[in-house]
Design a protein around this nucleic acid. Sequence first.
RNA 1: GGGGGUGUAGCUCAGUUGGUUAGAGCGCUGGCCUGUCACGCCAGAGGCCGCGGGUUCGAGUCCCGUCACUCCCGCCA
Length: 611
Amino acid sequence: MQFDKIDAYCPRNKMIFGVNHMHRYRTHNCGELSEKNENVRVKISGWVHRKRDHGSLLFVDLRDHYGLTQCVIDTSDSAFSIVESLRNESVVTITGLVKKRSDETVNNNLKTGQIEVLIEEIIVQSEAEMLPLQVNSDDDAGEETRLRYRYLDLRRTRPHNNIVLRSKIIQSIRNRMIEQGFSEFQTPILTASSPEGARDFLVPARLHPGKFYALPQAPQQFKQLIMMAGFEKYFQIAPCFRDEDSRADRSPGEFYQLDLEMSFVEQEDVFATVEPVIAGVFEEFSGKKIDLNFEHISYADSMLKYGNDKPDLRIPIEIADVTDIFRGSDFSIFAKNIEKGAVVRAIPGPKCGSRAIADRMNSWAQSEGAAGLGYIIYSNEEAKGPVAKALGQKKSNEIKSKLSLEDGDAAFFSCAFEKEASSLAGRARVRIGTEQELIDETVFKFCWIVDFPMFEKDELTGKIEFSHNPFSMPQGGMEALNTKDPLEIKAWQYDLVCNGVELSSGAIRNHLPEVMYRAFEIAGYGPEVVDEKFPAMINAFKFGAPPHGGIAPGIDRIVMLIAQEPNIREIILFPMNGKAEDIMMSAPSLVDEKQLNELHIRKTSSSQKIS
RNA sequence: GGGGGUGUAGCUCAGUUGGUUAGAGCGCUGGCCUGUCACGCCAGAGGCCGCGGGUUCGAGUCCCGUCACUCCCGCCA
């Protein structure tokens, strides 16, 4: 045991029998020492981040969660050989005197760069073997190595900071929700499989042979039932489980939502609740400008102007429908397709008025699976290119003024059935925005996509289906369901979009049993289906259900945007790989026959082949 | 399930029209160095060129298959 009276005022030390007792591992962390601590004997613990060995003088950068402190030892010291032989990432405890550095040796890049610790004693707590990845390097190792040794990867500055950022963002969201009077509740993880939505993860029920729990895809029904229970304002940082394939912005298996639900509200009330929370955290953590104007865009407008339901409003390009201009024109490919029901969407291409750019866009469109991308180039008060030639100057100039184009610009055309034409136009819009560097990277622009259709027609079967959430309230209620063309009915259903990323989806819910039965009837399900598949909800609606609605912003996507990481795995502590495996923990894994027997599970021949 | 990209030293990557003994940086081992902070210098070890087959006098390089990782489509109320 060390006894030391020099830093008796250090709060980490204890007074025992009137003698100051130095803490076993640290009196200070590696990020807090400064000139103020000059000549104080301190103890710090951490990882050997890097060594600079000058033969008879050796520097060690000691790292912990809080920072980096340079420690020095010279050859005259007995501990020198221990320090010299230490491998990077070994964990040590160093005791020594804090010394102010001379002016020439101050390192202003380091928080503790004004001082260094003269090593008097070093205790090796844990030795490191040769490392599979370099912790002190900014260069990423391969993804597989990083995930297999995630605990090493997470020591690195950027991954470490991302996870801390995530924690702070979640904390801030919690505070903001609680300040608005919301209560945080936990909902079951083992629940019932629900027919709507994605594929479920199933958990065999030991006590019920042949039956399964499912992990919740979202606490959707529970949060509505919480409203039935009269709690009024609920939220949860909720784990959600969906057995779907991964993407760069979609972690396989599990993710987190800020799940929230409110009673006695309309759409605008939900918006007014969510906007300050989202804008607030983006403002607090991102350092970018936040456009506080949460524009409302109808689903139909969004599909037309932006070609998708998650527009990136930073791109100053709006798509226009020009079907009428091409109808019956001499540009026969389009004219013929229009006769068959196709539409033509025009995408303005600012500063794209060159043959090279037009050709590049065309071959890009072909690589996207389209027949091509028509174009008109406007230069010297003339419309050029094969489309302009067939269409004539008059109609070409009509397009020019409709799109507000100038000489030096181009118009691109996507001609197909509506869904495909608008989709390609939307992708072309993003492509032009990216290639021409029209995206303002310093701002977050939010919008609400509203008025989603309640139903849609399955293109293959012609069947009417719920286009989004079957629990949403149709606009116009029962009357609309009974009198309107189902495909014309809108739902009180909304998405929150930021910079082209779908952050969130929500709705005012249908709380009326008769409207619920009618909506399902339109989608081809009898009342017995509703009773069987959603027994809790439909029953609860029959005992006094408050009108209610909510939303569920994706936590991972919010953190991704704020951290400016293009891959969702960068902001998750222990993510799975693209095939939904945790290669660090070896999940999924084979289990004992005994476990399977208890669960009444027998493997099929195909799964036995694998084992 | 389908399409694209990648696979070479512990890690990150280079490797020409197919042609001697496959290279670099970091890391590792040893040596030198008293003010560095991505310290510097010298030397060394380390390779089933993802795997299997084919073409060829000769394959890291070309062809076929296969596996792994990754991005995208499908899927994601």
